[in-house]
Design a protein around this nucleic acid. Structure first.
Lengths: 208, 208
DNA sequence: ACGTCAGTCTAACAAACGATAGGTTGACGG
DNA sequence: CCGTCAACCTATCGTTTGTTAGACTGACGT
């Protein structure tokens, strides 16, 4: 059963180990998919290990516990989305154009590839110990959107905090229903959400 | 250990057994809370049984399996929300007023009491067998909202299907972040969501 | 008074779970 | 060539999981 055992570093960068970091990323990726699909308790360490090409015990070399692994996955995913958003709004002018660019990047990162994100998770009590850390990760991303919403000229009866929750709620809900099809891309979804919200501007009057 | 054993019917309605139906409702309620809090795999049959005042084996007298129990819970919850919405819009005039009444009822049922709802669940593969039935339940409620959105006079660039997903996404996302506090009720949340969307009307022009 | 039967408990099953301890491998520096 | 150590495997632990079979209990109709 010649599983690839031992270390396989070939030309190898010296000094610090990059082989371990590589594996860590693989595990993070596979665990991300499984956590997103099955939830925290639904995904088992054995499944995650198997998906990475490892055995369950080997995971504990890289992560101290299942909780710790989840935190790492969640953190990596938020950072991923956050950086994609930051990259997307770089150099874009106009408050609404910036928000739209952010929404598109946010949506694309969430919906493309392997549904690797776990943003919409309602944390189970099993994660109560690490909950603060998870919330903090999410908060950073929330602040980023706050900074995009702040310059918008919204009507006075709009609460900017609830507005942010509204935007992210509408965007994130797509992970539930979205299936990649020919006639709608993740960007289309994001554009429509922002397209709707563009009507919420200072000059306009609400329907009665 | 005098657990209440046997049956306890007192004055008892004759004919069909109403004691069993009562228990069923209890189980549905407790299971609803636990499924909502911990997810499908996170909530165990033993916990559910204990919360109802039973032992795990006794659940199988009322429900054939955990899957079946989940389907029943999900179905009951959707029906609950749906009926609350139907009751709320009864006699209300005006397309937007009707949608707002619906949103309030939807939100209140979701957020009050014991967070008993499981609308936002992304079904794990463990539920693949019963997935069609779950989706069908959700679809009925979706059609109800469709009928409320249809009479709205929306700008031509708005896709009514995406608009419904937008509304429900924004509303449902509240179950993640909402905590009952003094200065905001579930109805306030719903009103704000609809308040935002009221700006999306035919006469208005979007921000650029 | 008696049999029936709904409803619950008891006790147990195999399987899967997270986690651990210790052995094995092979690339590396000296 | 040898010792070191990162990276992985093996085997196993105790617990919990969903589920089942069968015994029990007490209210009911007759």
């Amino acid at each position: 059963m010649a599983r690839s055992t031992g270390r396989m570093r070939k030309d190898s960068e010296r000094g610090s180990d990059a082989g371990a970091a590589e594996r860590r990323k693989q595990i993070l990726t596979e665990a991300g998919k499984l956590f997103a699909a099955r939830g925290f308790e639904g995904a088992s360490m054995r499944e995650i290990a198997a998906a990475t090409g490892l055995l369950s015990g080997s995971l504990y070399y890289h992560f101290a516990s299942k909780e710790e692994l989840f935190v790492a996955v969640y953190d990596a995913n938020i950072r991923m989305v956050s950086e994609a958003v930051r990259r997307a709004i770089e150099g874009v002018e106009g408050a609404w154009a910036r928000l739209e660019a952010a929404a598109i990047a946010h949506c694309e990162t969430l919906l493309t590839g392997d549904r690797t994100a776990v943003l919409d998770v309602k944390f189970p009590p099993s994660l109560l110990g690490v909950r603060p850390r998870l919330i903090q990760s999410r908060d950073e991303h929330d602040r980023l959107f706050d900074s995009l919403i702040e310059p918008l000229e919204l009507p006075d009866d709009i609460n900017r905090n609830l507005f942010r929750l509204h935007v992210l709620g509408a965007l994130n809900s797509a992970v539930i229903w979205y299936r990649p099809s020919s006639h709608m891309s993740p960007a289309d979804v994001a554009r429509h959400v922002i397209g709707v919200l563009r009507y919420v501007r200072k000059g306009n009057t609400p329907a009665t």
